[in-house]
């Protein structure tokens, strides 16, 4: 309990640091007045002034930060301003994010599930049969996959599966994008495969080397000597103690994919968070950038928290060591 409490305190501190830094950094880049000029360069002077007023750019820095945090906590992430002359319109940032987040989550989740579903049995089996022909073949394939950039996979898929054979649509920029996996799977399948492929290679190799180490352990011989089937020895006895590294990397990937799948999102025109973030920077909508960066940071931190808890679930020694500490 105390452990969770200290962790929570740390979490809050880190969140403050992250929000402050990103707020300050973007102010620094944008410059107070410039920020609006960059967002709506073709708006009339009066409109720009109005927007400045609305955002509160005229106030002192710390007041701005406080207001921003206050709004952020209540779910008001600010507005996206577009338009020219006197016609400046605004859309709430939260509205856009709410539309995009499920897409990114789906992309990330399925890519991870696919990668793990293939990598876990493959890693376990190649470790079990380390040195066999199959193991060597799989190792080489994995090494090749690691050298295959995700965008190359994506472009290959887009070229053949999409353009040449026309099995799946390559452009997902349909509006509104169907949020239910049952309706959007044909848009998501290729992006998911593109993201998962390299991860299969990474996961398989990491799990394999950890498994090989575990399979040398005495308790594996004990399990074998108990007469339980090989499959159970591998999956019930060896897999769990071998999966901590895999868990770490998978956790990191989940974090990285939520905002980092930009290239794949772009190639397949998937409306995800990564693409939104890139677009916000390219079109200098820094208010949007700010909110997204903070959201991603929060996601990252929560994820770390979650992975930490998973460690304890997987390994009772960690659980108890922490309870004592």
């Amino acid at each position: 309990m105390r452990m969770i409490f200290t962790k929570l305190v740390r979490l809050v501190v880190v969140l403050f640091v992250v929000t402050f830094l990103s707020f300050w950094f973007i102010k620094l880049i944008g410059g107070n007045n410039d920020l609006v000029a960059k967002m709506i360069p073709f708006a009339s002077i009066e409109e720009k002034e109005r927007v400045r007023e609305e955002i509160g750019l005229n106030k002192p820095f710390f007041v701005q930060y406080r207001n921003w945090i206050g709004n952020f906590v209540t779910g008001d992430l600010g507005q996206i301003y577009t338009g020219s002359g006197a016609n400046v319109a605004s859309v709430p940032v939260s509205e856009t994010i709410v539309k995009r987040l499920p897409v990114s989550l789906e992309l990330m989740l399925y890519a991870q599930l696919l990668a793990l579903a293939i990598a876990i049995p493959l890693g376990v089996f190649t470790a079990y049969r380390a040195g066999s022909k199959f193991d060597r073949g799989s190792n080489m394939a994995a090494f090749g996959l690691l050298a295959l950039p995700q965008f190359v996979v994506a472009l290959l898929l887009a070229t053949y599966v999409g353009a040449k054979w026309q099995l799946l649509p390559t452009q997902a920029n349909v509006d509104p994008f169907p949020l239910s996996p049952a309706d959007n799977w044909q848009y998501m399948l290729m992006p998911i495969i593109s993201l998962a492929l390299a991860q299969i290679a990474i996961y398989t190799r990491l799990l394999r080397s950890d498994m090989i180490a575990t399979l040398q352990e005495d308790f594996i011989t004990t399990a074998k000597a108990k007469g339980i089937p090989a499959k159970r020895v591998l999956f019930r006895h060896a897999l769990r103690p071998s999966s901590l590294t895999l868990l770490t990397v998978a956790g990191l990937n989940v974090g990285a994919l939520i905002g980092g799948a930009v290239v794949i999102e772009r190639i397949f025109q998937v409306p995800g968070i990564g693409g939104l973030l890139a677009a916000s920077i390219l079109s200098q909508q820094y208010l949007l950038t700010q909110s997204l960066v903070v959201l991603i940071a929060i996601f990252y931190i929560l994820l770390n928290f979650f992975v930490d808890i998973l460690y304890s679930v997987l390994d009772p020694r960690i659980r108890h060591a922490r309870a004592v500490a």
Binding site: F219, G227, L314, D315
Partner: peptide, 22 residues
């Protein structure tokens, strides 16, 4: 496997490492 554990079994040298830690 039909014999291991049921007909013949083994106690190992190092009890610190012979039991599954998890």
């Amino acid at each position: 496997r039909a014999l291991w554990g049921s007909q013949m079994s083994m106690v190992f040298q190092d009890p610190m490492t012979s039991l599954n830690p998890v």
